[in-house]
Computed example of a mutant assay.
Amino acid sequence: MSHEIRIDKTKSPKAKPDQSNLGFGKYFTDHMFIMDYTEGTGWHDARIVPYGPLELDPATAALHYGQAIFEGMKAYNTQDGRILLFRPHKNMQRINVTNARMCIPQIDEDFFVDAVKALVNIDRDWIPASQGTSLYIRPFIFATDAVLGVHPSNTYKFIVILSPVGAYYSTGINPVKIYVENSYVRAVKGGTGFAKTCGNYAASLKAQAEAAEKGYIQVLWLDGVEKKYVEEVGSMNVFFKINGEVITPSLEGSILPGITRDSTIHLLKSMGIKVTERRIAIQEVFDAHKAGLLEEAFGTGTAAVISPIGELNWNGTGIIVNNGCTGELSSHIYDTITGIQSGELPDTFNWTVEVK
């Protein structure tokens, strides 16, 4: 595989959006990274080109059979003028885990981290500087064979696009209302729940839409077999602080291994807080609340970092967590991780990578 990246800079730079009203994923920078895969040749023709539409054959395999994956990561401006990525090699490792499950060829992880750095560097002026903002990085791969037939493609495109973003939830770090889903199923062991493949998210939309109609911002998924054990909150992993112990569902094949999840576990352990990864039933959570032992609940993910849970509704019964307020631990984790990401706190874990 060639490690050269061809660069074609735009001749028509776009106007940059208002940093105080970015929203999430609404605006895109001037350039994108593209690389192609052809069986027998491998990954080739790495290039950074002006952001723009793709021309695809109507028979493009990904449009018919869903052989497509993506990742999510961020770049941050520091007060001393540096640009930091947060654990980018973990994202590239996870891409290859997802690729293996989806029959997509493996990527050279170091090279693609370098490619992300190169793209971010070219569009560095797009990285917002306001507090709570960042440059969201979306790598994705999809099958491009123009043949109808259910089999792995022989050709693929790997693309990276960039988007200046504000908070994922309009509520910011304030607690959100979560609806516990009883009817629909996100994933089962042996399926694609542990992979970051596009179809997982398409399958979740119906439950999310119904929860939104009831006034809830996200769905808490239960396991797909017994509909008894907690799995994920929408696009986030989930944690419960019960009687001083932090519990998060163990990774058993149906849950996405979140990078913010992993970072949170490392951080909690460094603080001397007991963290347990195990199966946890939704009934146990509600019983803990009834006993006055459910102290905090929060989701973790790249987009929102930490999202405190203020209310849970299961089978028509609602419970308020921590009086609907952001918990002390949730706040500390959020402040610490975002502080490391923005360069305001020392990176004692060696999680950040500088873009130069």
Rank of each mutant, 00 (worst) to 15 (best):
R6N: 13
R6G: 00
D8N: 14
K14S: 09
G23S: 06
T29P: 07
M32R: 07
F33W: 11
E39G: 06
T41N: 08
G42P: 12
V49E: 12
P50W: 13
Y51K: 02
E55S: 10
I69N: 13
E71K: 00
D80E: 10
D80M: 01
F86T: 04
H89L: 12
Q93P: 01
Q93W: 01
R94M: 13
R101I: 13
P105S: 08
I107A: 00
I107C: 01
E109T: 15
N121M: 14
N121Q: 15
I122Y: 07
I127H: 05
P128I: 07
L135I: 13
F140I: 09
N154L: 10
P164V: 02
G166E: 00
A167R: 13
K177F: 11
I178H: 04
Y179K: 12
Y184I: 03
A195K: 03
T197M: 10
G199R: 03
N200K: 08
Y201I: 01
L205N: 02
Q208E: 13
Q208P: 00
E213W: 03
K214G: 05
G215S: 12
V219T: 15
V219A: 04
K228C: 06
F240V: 00
G253P: 03
S254H: 12
R261A: 01
S263N: 11
R278K: 15
R279A: 13
I282M: 15
Q283S: 14
E284M: 05
F286V: 00
A291K: 15
G292C: 08
A297E: 01
V305R: 01
S307M: 10
G310E: 13
W314Q: 02
T326H: 00
S330K: 11
S331D: 06
Y334Q: 10
D335N: 15
I337A: 02
I340M: 06
Q341I: 06
G343H: 02
D347F: 08
F349E: 03
N350F: 01
T352I: 07
E354G: 00
